[in-house]
Design a protein around this nucleic acid. Structure first.
Length: 105
DNA sequence: CGTATGACTAGCT
DNA sequence: CAGCTAGCCATAC
């Protein structure tokens, strides 16, 4: 990890680390970035879409596995579609964290 | 530099 | 079980 890397840099690195067919929560990424309480900041970075084509931000969901936000396509619809396509297990409108939560790190 | 905002989370009612 | 409030954080304006 690069010292002096800004929060967004760390978040991008962690998000890029998420394997296919798996998802991570905002809080988890925030924790990997060094701040377990910065879940809001993580989501904000994604909303700004600075990494839309650099990081698989669609693999990031809320702590409950619910698909939140997504500033591209049809929003959560497109997000869910991509995740399903990648092999993520869905439970209704939410992700089955018990089966698809990334335990990386 | 100070204020406002948002794709969060946990706790309480 | 569902809805609302309060707390925390980094970025944008």
């Amino acid at each position: 990890m690069k010292a002096g890397a800004t929060f967004s840099e760390k978040v991008h690195a962690a998000a890029s680390k998420i394997p296919l067919g798996k998802v991570a929560t905002y809080g988890q990424l925030a924790a990997l970035a060094g701040n377990p309480r910065a879940g809001r900041a993580v989501g904000m970075l994604m909303s700004k879409n600075r990494d839309a084509n650099v990081v698989p931000c669609h693999r990031v969901v809320s702590s409950a596995g619910a698909l939140t936000g997504y500033s591209m396509g049809k929003g959560v619809v497109t997000k869910m579609s991509k995740l399903k396509k990648e092999g993520v297990v869905f439970k209704g409108e939410k992700v089955d964290l018990a089966a698809s939560l990334w335990k990386g790190n």
